[in-house]
Deep mutational scan, measured.
Amino acid sequence: MATGGRRGAAAAPLLVAVAALLLGAAGHLYPGEVCPGMDIRNNLTRLHELENCSVIEGHLQILLMFKTRPEDFRDLSFPKLIMITDYLLLFRVYGLESLKDLFPNLTVIRGSRLFFNYALVIFEMVHLKELGLYNLMNITRGSVRIEKNNELCYLATIDWSRILDSVEDNYIVLNKDDNEECGDICPGTAKGKTNCPATVINGQFVERCWTHSHCQKVCPTICKSHGCTAEGLCCHSECLGNCSQPDDPTKCVACRNFYLDGRCVETCPPPYYHFQDWRCVNFSFCQDLHHKCKNSRRQGCHQYVIHNNKCIPECPSGYTMNSSNLLCTPCLGPCPKVCHLLEGEKTIDSVTSAQELRGCTVINGSLIINIRGGNNLAAELEANLGLIEEISGYLKIRRSYALVSLSFFRKLRLIRGETLEIGNYSFYALDNQNLRQLWDWSKHNLTITQGKLFFHYNPKLCLSEIHKMEEVSGTKGRQERNDIALKTNGDQASCENELLKFSYIRTSFDKI
């Protein structure tokens, strides 16, 4: 039985969820670079991206490699990797027998973001014989899940209580170790020597080791999670996991709180800001991140802002960003909400898709409305799209047979046209069989910064309504002859009103 693990408890099935942008060198404390989270699957090609990484700022997932063999891993080693800020997950990587050479110096898994409450997941690794993470000293947050690894031993010899604050939620089941077939031998045991430290858990006094050649490092209890030197002297209180010299914040392997210019500090002093819960960055760093993602459509890219001495992905609820200094300031009234469309555009074809934009005031991208039916549609669209004030790209209304009016965009005031449909149009209306009105132009103002209007096959939309939009939106004169079809717009509506004058002759039985 794995020490510190839980057996036999019912657990939810383990679901495996399925960018080499360097964020800056980590400095003297770390020998390499800070790398983003990685999802490495199918083959070993991307694994080489770990070569210079000291910190993975995010998670590391290595999974679904069915053609790899043990010899493929023999020359692979990433000794610079010290810390993973989120979680480490391995799933069905064939041929991998140990992690001792792959990650010989991995010391800390912070667990800032977890995989279903777990910071370390080893699942269905069919050839893994031992973990071998002999320098792993601290899992700051989260638990361990090690399950269905039929060859995995050296679990009962690990004292997880020396690595985690609590072992109650560890789930370590259905491994070879369960069948008591392992016969784990710690260093020196074969020669009758006791080389590794022994600890007591559940009444068992057991030597602690990761492999037959690597003991588990056990520091004096007084050192807590700070770690200790090879001689057993406690590291500085700002260290986490390990250090090369005692009581020196510049000799830590990793930091308990924050890293700044080669030393570990309790908090980031001005003019620095907390970033990702582990390091200090200056304003320029946060500003660069903001600008890199301002026009990016890459998933996970955030326009970072500053709030409460932190550089964070977005302002919290009730705050909006001051564009001059990136500071989050309290909103006066309802907060603006910028919604970034991942692929640059979004099609609204149902109430469900409209709900995804609920509360958005600025759309960074283009909207395509293609709704053919739905219950209580006008009210639903207004509830979900009615706060949109600005669209950076274009607005396209296409084959939306259920629409009679666009009044559900009740606050839309600006279409920038930074991206144009077919390279020309910022407003595009095609084949809307029941569209009769755009907006009530006596109450609604709309500016279209650039781009043209396109109207074709809107049989109940009168040309007068379209011409009014040209005047109000500032697009009059931009359109070419064929942009607004004269014969297919309003051709099934009563669009022309003329005053009919009647004269009559009164007659009676005795007068003409």
Rank of each mutant, 00 (worst) to 15 (best):
H28M: 06
L29M: 10
L29Q: 03
P31V: 07
G32L: 12
E33G: 12
V34A: 13
C35L: 00
P36A: 11
P36R: 13
P36Y: 11
G37H: 06
D39R: 13
N42G: 04
L44A: 12
T45R: 15
R46L: 07
L47S: 05
L47W: 02
H48P: 05
E49H: 06
E49G: 05
E49Q: 06
E51K: 01
N52I: 02
C53W: 00
S54K: 03
S54E: 07
E57W: 03
E57G: 03
G58K: 00
L60Q: 00
I62W: 02
I62R: 00
L63A: 07
L64K: 05
L64M: 13
F66S: 08
F66G: 09
F66H: 14
F66Q: 05
T68K: 13
T68V: 06
E71P: 08
F73V: 05
D75I: 11
D75K: 04
L76N: 01
S77Y: 14
S77M: 14
F78W: 03
F78V: 04
K80C: 04
M83K: 03
T85E: 03
D86F: 00
Y87D: 00
L88I: 15
L89A: 02
L90N: 00
L90I: 08
F91R: 05
Y94R: 09
G95V: 02
E97I: 11
S98G: 02
L99E: 00
L102W: 11
F103T: 01
P104N: 00
P104T: 01
L106W: 01
T107E: 04
V108D: 01
R110S: 08
R110T: 04
G111A: 02
S112P: 00
F115L: 11
F116Q: 04
V121S: 09
V121N: 01
V121I: 07
E124T: 02
E124S: 09
K129A: 11
E130S: 08
Y134K: 00
Y134D: 13
N135P: 03
N135G: 14
I139T: 02
G142R: 01
G142W: 00
G142S: 02
G142I: 02
V144N: 02
I146M: 08
N149S: 10
E151V: 14
E151C: 06
L152W: 01
L152C: 15
Y154K: 11
L155A: 07
L155N: 13
A156W: 05
T157C: 08
L164K: 12
L164M: 14
D165T: 08
D165Y: 14
N170F: 09
Y171F: 10
V173T: 04
L174R: 13
N175A: 12
D177Y: 05
D177G: 15
N179H: 12
G183E: 14
D184C: 15
I185S: 05
I185A: 03
T189V: 10
A190E: 05
K193Q: 15
K193C: 15
N195H: 10
N195F: 10
P197L: 10
P197W: 05
A198I: 12
V200G: 15
I201R: 06
I201M: 11
G203H: 10
G203K: 09
Q204F: 13
Q204M: 09
F205M: 07
E207H: 14
C209L: 02
C209T: 04
W210E: 12
H212V: 05
H214Y: 13
H214W: 14
C215A: 09
Q216G: 04
Q216F: 10
K217M: 12
K217P: 14
I222V: 10
C223Q: 04
H226N: 08
C228W: 01
C228A: 02
C228N: 05
C228M: 02
A230E: 13
E231N: 04
L233M: 06
C234W: 01
S237Y: 11
E238K: 03
L240E: 02
N242D: 08
C243F: 00
P246F: 11
P246T: 02
P249R: 07
T250C: 05
T250R: 03
K251V: 08
V253E: 10
C255V: 00
C255P: 00
N257V: 01
N257F: 05
N257E: 05
F258H: 04
F258R: 04
Y259A: 12
L260W: 04
R263Q: 11
C264I: 00
V265S: 05
V265W: 09
C268V: 00
P270L: 10
Y272K: 04
Y273K: 06
Y273G: 02
Q276D: 15
W278Y: 04
W278L: 05
R279C: 02
C280D: 00
C280K: 01
C280A: 00
C280T: 00
N282D: 01
F283L: 09
F285S: 05
F285K: 01
D288P: 01
D288T: 04
H290W: 11
H291Y: 15
N295L: 12
N295F: 11
S296V: 07
R297C: 09
R297A: 12
R298F: 05
Q299N: 13
G300V: 10
G300P: 12
H302G: 13
H302T: 13
H302C: 05
H302A: 11
Q303F: 12
Y304W: 15
V305Q: 03
V305F: 06
I306S: 02
I306V: 11
I306M: 03
H307T: 02
N308W: 12
C311Q: 02
E314A: 10
P316R: 04
P316F: 02
G318L: 05
Y319V: 03
Y319S: 06
N322S: 13
L326F: 15
C328Q: 02
C328V: 03
T329K: 03
P330V: 09
L332V: 03
L332C: 07
G333Q: 09
C335V: 04
P336C: 02
